[in-house]
Nucleic acid binder design. Sequence first.
DNA 1: AATTAAATTAAACGAACGTTTAATTTAAAC
DNA 2: GTTTAAATTAAACGTTCGTTTAATTTAATT
Lengths: 208, 208
Amino acid sequence: METNFNDKQIKILEVAEVLFSEKGFDGTSIRDISKEAKINIAMISYYFGSKERLLEDLIIYRTSDLKLQLDYLILENLEPIEKVNKLIELYINRVNCNRGIYRILHFEFTSKKRNLNHEAFSELKKGNLKSLEAIIIEGQTKGVFKKDIVIPLITPTILGTFFHFQMNKPFFENLLNLNTEALYNNYIKTILTKHIQQTIKALLVYES
Amino acid sequence: METNFNDKQIKILEVAEVLFSEKGFDGTSIRDISKEAKINIAMISYYFGSKERLLEDLIIYRTSDLKLQLDYLILENLEPIEKVNKLIELYINRVNCNRGIYRILHFEFTSKKRNLNHEAFSELKKGNLKSLEAIIIEGQTKGVFKKDIVIPLITPTILGTFFHFQMNKPFFENLLNLNTEALYNNYIKTILTKHIQQTIKALLVYES
DNA sequence: AATTAAATTAAACGAACGTTTAATTTAAAC
DNA sequence: GTTTAAATTAAACGTTCGTTTAATTTAATT
């Protein structure tokens, strides 16, 4: 799979990322993209073949650099709980910095209309889960984490909390008086991240 | 706001619910809807005026019966933690039984293309948050819940976990061998719900 | 039975869609 | 400088979109 795009192609990809994420795949026309990118409509078919393949290329373009920083984390000399905290921070930061593409993945991968290559993305998720599992089991072996934990449900709690917050952005902006983008981002970086860390820690160590 | 629809209108609404939720608003044509509902295309404009208003009516139709069972819960004579557990069960059940409409809300309310009436839905969410707050504060007053909890972030954790699981249905079906719809639903009802209850309880009572 | 209103239909509307064509410009190779 | 390939363009393609029209059928009212 080729990932070397020229300037024009990158421009198209970046505009598509913004528009797809804002208005959805079906809600964005290639005329919208070409106008915003100041590139002739025909260039999109010329470079990518079709709108659907543009989306596929976009996903590859944005997830190929997302190579696992997780594996480094596992090998670090840290307490299990510290590793989990770092993992959460890493997750939130990754997803928050690449909102556009994650929003698209979130929406378009779920649509029954799209028949994208689910396999590749599924493998990515499985790999991430394996890394998380390694950290949890290490903590259990060391006796700091309790035993009866459903590991595959931890990621939904971490990412789900973030996504749900993100999806209801206008609501929370209003509720929490996060009037500026900076305030909003800061809230994610500090309070939301801490909330998730606190939640997961409690789940992992609290004996009922 | 009128909520009395005749049989034909209800048929249209129910078909629209399924299709919007499966293929998105922009991904569904009114021809799709009319064909599936076996009703002439013109009837949709005739009854609802436009496709956009059909969506608005659909949301009203499905959320008007969603009147707060929460308020009953608050008044019940239960321990705070039991109330929280029941609230989670109620939330998951509600959202799980009305997947279609919640999926639509989730997707279309977030789209910058839609300019739906956010205000009404925002008020609904604020009301729900107030109910949750009442329960948490009661628990804190009774000394069973700890003090430093960011209450507005509890709902994202509850619903976010569920939604993220739901959004990645094919992945988890495969991972957890939930081959049939019954097995999948049962997993939500038992293990996923318990995971969320366990998580929130730990968050509320665990002192670090 | 005649009148009136509501429900339903097939057909057509103009606009927007993704894509292709064929001509032209730009750049590279020789 | 000529040739050749790549990049770029405006225009047109055929389809599908949401919506409207105008005619017809059904049902209710008098």
